[in-house]
Simulated scan of single mutants.
Amino acid sequence: MAASLAEPGQRLLARVVDTLVVGVPVVLVVRELVPGHTADVMAPSAVAGCMLLYEAIQLALWGRTLGKRVAGIEVVAATPQEAPEAAPRGAGGAGGAGENAGLGNESAFPVSVPGFVPVAAPEPAKAPAPEEAEVVDASTRPDVLHCVLRAAVYSVPIGLRPIPVLGLLASIFWVVNAGAMFEGVRRQAVHDRLAGTLVVKRPRPESSAF
């Protein structure tokens, strides 16, 4: 089953929903159980642990969390990219036939002029094709270990926020993680690259009501 890659806006919507579903209840419970400044230190770690379980379990079972259901996307295993095969020159192609025809045709160049050296005209440079998001196979779901790894790479930095230096590094990681989606044509964030996953649009089921 082929599917298009998810848009960055869809992925942002999914993260916002998941963060609200997990983060708000966990923070409220921690503040009720732990008074004072200790709650501010424990809340990020509690959110990180719950987010890890929340995401890893749902991805392993269904390939999508509640937020991804709302956004209409899901996580699939990434297939290796195949490099395009280069067409051999002169192997029966149009370019090879043109070169042979030009060399074999004696009337192509004025050979009667002494000292004349024919020079082949350079081929016009082709403009690079714009990068487009590819259509991928959405039938393979990632295994449990890759789901746990993907969830951990995103969730662990949340628990590091109370630690001064590590909290700063976690903030930098989230910026890099978001920017990685715009590098390349597969729109893979850092946790996608490490876990070998892609986020694709989930096709809507066809209805016979209309």
Rank of each mutant, 00 (worst) to 15 (best):
1 M>G: 10
2 A>Q: 15
3 A>L: 08
4 S>V: 03
5 L>F: 03
5 L>P: 00
8 P>S: 12
12 L>Y: 14
14 A>G: 04
14 A>R: 04
16 V>L: 15
17 V>Q: 10
19 T>I: 07
19 T>C: 13
21 V>P: 01
22 V>W: 15
23 G>V: 11
25 P>D: 13
26 V>S: 12
26 V>E: 14
32 E>Y: 13
32 E>K: 11
33 L>G: 09
35 P>I: 14
35 P>S: 15
38 T>S: 15
39 A>K: 03
42 M>G: 05
44 P>D: 12
47 V>P: 05
47 V>H: 13
47 V>W: 15
49 G>C: 14
50 C>E: 12
52 L>T: 09
56 A>S: 15
57 I>T: 12
58 Q>D: 09
59 L>N: 10
62 W>G: 05
65 T>D: 10
66 L>H: 08
69 R>I: 10
70 V>G: 05
70 V>C: 09
71 A>E: 04
71 A>V: 01
73 I>C: 07
78 A>L: 11
80 P>E: 06
80 P>D: 11
82 E>F: 04
82 E>D: 06
83 A>V: 10
84 P>Q: 03
85 E>W: 04
85 E>S: 07
85 E>Y: 10
86 A>W: 08
87 A>L: 15
88 P>F: 11
89 R>N: 00
91 A>M: 07
93 G>L: 11
95 G>Y: 14
98 G>H: 01
99 E>G: 04
103 L>P: 00
108 A>K: 04
109 F>E: 03
110 P>W: 00
112 S>V: 03
113 V>T: 07
114 P>D: 01
114 P>C: 01
115 G>I: 01
118 P>C: 05
118 P>V: 05
121 A>V: 15
122 P>K: 05
123 E>W: 04
124 P>D: 10
124 P>V: 12
125 A>E: 15
125 A>M: 13
125 A>C: 03
126 K>V: 13
127 A>I: 14
129 A>P: 02
129 A>F: 00
133 A>V: 00
134 E>A: 01
136 V>R: 01
136 V>P: 01
137 D>A: 09
140 T>E: 14
140 T>F: 03
144 V>D: 06
148 V>H: 11
149 L>H: 03
150 R>E: 09
150 R>P: 04
151 A>W: 14
152 A>C: 10
152 A>V: 06
153 V>E: 11
154 Y>L: 15
154 Y>A: 13
157 P>F: 15
159 G>W: 08
159 G>V: 06
159 G>R: 09
160 L>T: 08
164 P>C: 11
167 G>A: 14
170 A>V: 08
171 S>T: 08
172 I>D: 07
177 N>G: 01
178 A>E: 08
182 F>D: 00
183 E>F: 08
186 R>M: 04
187 R>T: 02
188 Q>P: 03
188 Q>W: 01
197 T>N: 07
197 T>Q: 09
197 T>H: 11
198 L>M: 09
200 V>D: 02
200 V>Q: 04
201 K>W: 06
205 P>Q: 06
206 E>D: 01
209 A>F: 03
210 F>V: 03
